[in-house]
């Protein structure tokens, strides 16, 4: 069970990060965050979206770093949890890349 759960953590981080950033994007557009300054040229909306993306990337990277120490179920190989973590990290980086490239609302 633990092995299967470990395999799902990476893509799960992507799913949570995707939902978080999409929700922040929706809330920000509805509440006018792009017009609210945060620091310098950075507005509240961009700040929130960057924060959400970086948190998701950080969680994915942390998972990859910690995975070798995680105790998998005896008799099951570690490749699937590892590949799952890479899938999650790559998907987080690619699908949320528009945070850095596109206008928000």
């Amino acid at each position: 069970m633990r092995w299967l759960a470990l395999s799902l953590v990476g893509p799960g981080i992507w799913a949570a990060g995707f939902v978080l950033v999409y929700a922040l994007h929706g809330v920000g557009c509805a509440r006018g965050w792009p017009a609210m300054g945060l620091a310098g040229a950075l507005d509240l909306h961009a700040g929130a979206l960057w924060a959400g993306w970086l948190v998701a990337l950080g969680a994915g990277a942390l998972l990859l770093l910690r995975l070798p120490r995680a105790k998998a179920e005896a008799g099951l190989p570690v490749w699937l949890p590892r590949v799952g973590a890479w899938i999650g990290l790559a998907a987080t980086a690619f699908t949320l890349l528009p945070v850095a490239l596109a206008t928000s609302c």
């Binding site: 799913a15 994007h25 929706g26």
Partner: peptide
């Protein structure tokens, strides 16, 4: 997992903001 992150591509013409379209 990824197949649950695509649903809005059926709604590209309903007036969704640029960034969401790009996601």
């Amino acid at each position: 997992f990824l197949s649950f992150g695509l649903w809005v591509h059926h709604m590209f013409t309903v007036g969704i903001p640029h960034m969401a379209l790009a996601f």
